[in-house]
Write a protein that binds this DNA or RNA. Structure first.
Length: 422
RNA sequence: GACCCGUUCGUCUAGCGGUCUAGGACUCCGCCCUUUCACGGCGGCAACACGGGUUCAAGUCCCGUACGGGUCGCCA
């Protein structure tokens, strides 16, 4: 059975690179009817934190990545490692560092070649490399050893990890051989970099998985975007369901060059996913991002506008605030139109006198006013938009005004007319 | 520095020797739709790192160079 794993060390936040590694492992297991294992590599006691562990688990869960086995903690598996350690000792592979007493692995120092599913055939001359340390003087084991032992012990068949591990693979292969174990299939996926090509760090926008729920991204959208970094369906599709991805997920769809992370496209994709939600689903998701006391009825107005839920607030302000500041350029555009003032005064009167307050009646009032003024209704819409909301670009005007209410709408128009044409 | 990997529009990418005057997407711009804003539709700008080979034919194969990234820990 196919078995993959994600093996983070709980020393920091979960970054997008790690999340994508986890995702690819998870996808490969799911696509092949296998198991996905979660293993926490917490051998460096000094650097581990519970907070980091929670951030990693939380991030995985948010993305919808679940695990079939584990979580295992390396800190709790000492006996297993001791058992394998004896094999190395008995094989004569271990010798102490004369200075510190740390224990090193006697490398065969050969040239070795292995097949990587992404990078192809890799050949490395190990003869000049120093022997790796596998055990500290205090008896604790080091990454290379426990990583290999666990992969053997857990029956991991495919190791998908970042390309930063590519040069660790020959070392690991030496350990597999010394242990008499069959190595797994390796696939080293390219790294995710900043737009300028530098390494992503916690400060960089979009680097931390935790920032996505906070910014109002949908897990499906982020998962979709992350898949597109280093993997693609080999056709023109970009918005892909999990089923679509699972159907196609395989080595020849992975590519081998590093990807630069672009938040813009992720936001666009998220907007696509948000737009597809039912109004009820959207309202529910968006409410936590709306200002205190916002009526849920207003939220569908912004559904087709926002790319992330954190943008909801900005779109809502012109609707919620009677004295929302008028956009200067929009105001200038209106005041430069010699007819605008009379248009707005007429429309304000018409709206004030209309007996019903629905989208249709507002539309009717606009049409009638336009007819009276001898102009087209379309000519009134922009001034009306600016005068009633303060902005040139906003939500659907008729629907918005209906929800704002008759009295407030008229008051807003008159107040802005006074200030714009002062 | 040594070793390893990589290099198609600004970005994500398609392309696995002829179908490439290089396709899609994000961004930006224009037009259409909308009696409004968006969405959507249509169109535009924009790329095969460079130099040698191999071949009738190279973005596609090979070799160099340049550039980018990674690794060389008693971190993982």
């Amino acid at each position: 059975m196919v078995k993959t794993r994600f093996a983070p060390s709980p020393t920091g936040y979960l970054h997008v690179g790690g999340a994508r590694t986890a995702l690819f492992n998870w996808l490969y297991a799911r696509a092949n009817g296998g198991h996905f294992v979660l293993r926490v590599e917490d051998t460096d006691a000094a650097r581990n934190t519970e907070e980091a562990r929670e951030a990693i688990f939380g991030g995985l869960s948010w993305l919808g990545i679940d695990w079939d086995e584990g979580p295992f903690y390396q800190s709790q598996r000492q006996e297993i490692y001791d058992r394998y350690w004896k094999i190395l000792e008995d094989g004569g592979y271990i010798y102490p560092d004369p200075e510190s007493g740390a224990l090193r692995f006697r490398s065969p120092k050969e040239t070795l070649t292995f097949e990587d599913k992404v990078c192809g055939e890799i050949t490395v001359d190990r003869s000049a490399e120093p022997d790796m340390t596998l055990r500290r003087p205090d008896g604790s084991y080091i990454f290379h050893f426990v990583n290999v032992v666990d992969d053997i012990e857990m029956g991991i068949t495919h190791v998908i990890r970042g390309e930063d591990h590519l040069m660790n693979t020959p070392k690991h292969l030496e350990i597999y051989k010394a242990l008499g174990a069959k190595p797994p299939v390796f696939a080293h996926i390219p790294l995710i970099l900043n737009e300028d090509g530098s390494k992503m760090s916690k400060r960089d926008q979009g680097a931390a998985v935790a920032s996505y729920p906070a910014e109002g991204f949908l897990p499906d959208a982020v998962r979709n975007y992350l898949c597109l970094l280093g993997w693609n369906p080999k056709d023109d599709r970009e918005k892909l369901s999990l089923e679509d991805i699972l159907a196609l997920f395989d080595w020849d769809h992975l590519n081998s060059s590093n990807a630069k992370f672009g938040l813009e496209k992720c936001q666009w994709l998220n907007g696509q996913y948000l737009a597809e939600l039912s109004p009820q689903e959207f309202t529910e998701a968006a409410m936590p991002f709306a200002p205190e006391g916002t009526s849920p009825a207003l939220l569908p107005l912004v559904q087709q506008k926002v790319r992330t839920l954190s943008e909801v607030k900005e779109w809502l302000r012109p609707i919620l605030e009677d004295d929302f500041p008028t956009n200067p350029e929009a105001a200038a555009k209106i005041s430069s139109n010699p007819d605008a003032k009379s248009y707005l005064e007429a429309i304000a009167t018409a709206l004030a006198e209309t007996s019903e307050w629905t989208q249709d009646s507002i539309k009717q009032a606009v049409a009638t006013t336009a007819a009276t003024l001898g102009t087209k209704p379309g000519k009134l819409m922009f001034p009306l938009r600016v005068a009633s909301s303060g902005v040139a670009q906003g939500t659907d005007l008729l629907a918005t005004l209906e929800l704002v209410g008759q009295e407030r709408t008229v008051t807003r128009i008159r107040s802005r007319v006074a200030s714009i044409f002062a």
